[in-house]
């Protein structure tokens, strides 16, 4: 009996039987008994396909799994992107929107420090203006500041309230950008900071799409993904990130949250803070003071 002589069941009670639906009553009219022969051959073919698929996938996974052939011990904490690994410092970032004056000093500092091309940014500052007629307008703080840019400003008498919201990487514990990378160029460092391996990145841009905060971008000079990494190179030398170092008003605070004596720990202990887009469940490490519902 060749493959082509097998009865191909496409409809009728037997088809329902083959897919496990007999118990629902579809076969009680006698269709099952007449189709029992077909069912037997159908089942053996399904069994064969199941076994073959399992074995193929199993064999493939052996060659694809990272580290499966390397024989190295992989610490479980490093594999699970749930915050810092054991014995590693835990960093945090706090943005106090009530202190930001929109001078834009952090923007230049970041650009210089990280060589960010003109027209792109690792961090930016949004301004939310609530007008008395109910409108809310959002614009971006120019890097040279509003005063030097000469941009027309809304009339102060029309404004109910306004505030600046600096944006930077949230270093999500459950980072969507990390999960989508097809070449493992997205790195969750042992300290919990999300990095880009620029040597491995193929520039596909999946991570740029995946970040719900729009932090990642394709660097148009290097053609690989780039993102705010809290100035990882500075942090590893016990220095502050460039934007924090540049902020004259203390709107950006960086430090170790596992040290109760650090400024960020003291502020986190006394101020009500929240995170951006909490409903997405990405567990951001960057926390904000003074967020409103309009800020996303």
């Amino acid at each position: 009996m060749s493959l082509f002589e097998l009865p191909i069941v496409t409809s009728g009670p037997a088809a329902r039987c083959a897919s496990g639906g007999c118990a629902t009553g579809g076969c009680t009219s006698g269709g099952c008994s007449s189709g029992s022969a077909e069912r037997a051959s159908e089942t053996s073919r399904r069994e064969f396909l199941k076994t073959a698929t399992t074995m193929t996938l199993g064999a493939m996974s052996l060659t694809l799994l990272p580290g499966a052939m390397a024989g190295d011990e992989v610490p479980a904490a490093a594999l699970h992107p749930g915050g810092p690994a054991a014995n590693k410092p835990m960093y945090g970032f706090l943005i106090d929107t009530t202190k930001c004056t929109g001078a834009g000093k952090c923007l230049t500092a970041c650009r210089v420090e990280n060589g960010v091309p003109e027209g792109q940014a690792r961090t930016w500052v949004e301004r939310y203006v609530h007008f008395k007629d109910g409108r809310v307008e959002v614009d971006l703080v120019p890097e040279i500041g509003y005063a030097a840019s000469g941009e027309p400003q809304p009339a102060a008498e029309d404004v109910l309230r306004a505030y600046f919201v600096p944006k930077l990487c949230n270093q999500c514990v459950d980072a969507p950008c990390n999960q989508v990378c097809p070449v493992h160029a997205s790195i969750k460092s042992p300290e919990g900071i999300e990095l880009v391996d620029t040597d491995r990145c193929i520039g596909c841009g999946y991570c740029v799409q995946a970040c719900p905060y729009g932090i990642r971008y394709m660097n148009h000079e290097t053609n690989v993904a780039d993102k705010c990494n809290w100035c990882y190179h500075r942090v590893m030398r016990n220095e502050q990130p460039a934007c924090v170092e540049a902020c004259p008003t203390g709107a950006r605070v960086f430090g170790r949250v596992d040290d109760p004596e650090s400024e960020i720990s003291k502020r986190l202990a006394t101020l009500p803070t929240s995170v951006l887009k909490q409903h997405l469940g990405t567990l951001p490490l960057t926390r904000y003071v003074g967020l409103t519902d309009e800020v996303t």
Binding site: P66, G67, A70, D72, V74, P75, A78, L79, H184, A185, S186, I187, K188, P190, D197, D199, R200
Partner: peptide, 8 residues
């Protein structure tokens, strides 16, 4: 690759 986690 894979020494500390799923990355280089």
């Amino acid at each position: 690759f894979g020494r500390q986690g799923p990355y280089r």
